[in-house]
């Protein structure tokens, strides 16, 4: 009987630990998303739209999950330095240049990337702000 009680307590403790860990990472994701949304509204929304729909052939939509996934490590570069080369998104080529946002800090960039890659039908989880620094060093 005692063994069973101990085992039960042990299991509950482990479960609680795992559960609280999970919710902590969920909280982190939620905080990235909510901060990222504010940055998105301020810097990105005028061209890319409230729902990430883009603007005609002038600004691409942010709904191409495959593109976002394949270029994940370049997203920080696109935001910080701008883009001046054609991009193929959802099978369409976009040639207008994207302005740079040098005023954004690494944490801002990470938050806005998390917002974009977890909105508009994308669901790619967290992108830690520590990654921004190394990604920016490897811009193509």
């Amino acid at each position: 009987m005692r063994k069973i009680i101990l085992l039960a307590i042990f299991t509950i403790t482990i479960c609680t630990m795992i559960y609280s860990c999970q919710s902590e990472s969920e909280i982190e994701l939620a905080s990235y998303v909510s901060n990222g949304k504010d940055i998105y509204i301020k810097y990105c929304q005028n061209c890319h739209g409230e729902k990430g729909e883009g603007l005609g052939q002038l600004a691409p939509p942010l709904t191409d999950s495959v593109f976002l996934k394949e270029n994940k490590s370049q997203l920080a570069c696109f935001i910080k330095n701008g883009v001046n080369k054609p991009m193929v998104i959802n099978g369409k080529t976009y040639q207008e240049k994207m302005p740079s946002f040098p005023q954004l800090e690494n944490i801002d960039i990470a938050q806005v990337i998390v917002y974009v890659t977890n909105s508009f039908g994308n669901k790619q989880g967290i992108y830690q702000h520590q990654l921004v620094e190394s990604d920016l060093r490897n811009c193509k």
């Binding site: 005028n46 061209c47 603007l55 005609g56 600004a59 302005p99």
Partner: peptide, 13 residues
């Protein structure tokens, strides 16, 4: 123009 124009023309569209 990268500031208000895209929004203006999105809405005007």
């Amino acid at each position: 123009c990268t500031t208000i124009c895209p929004t203006m023309h999105r809405n005007l569209k």
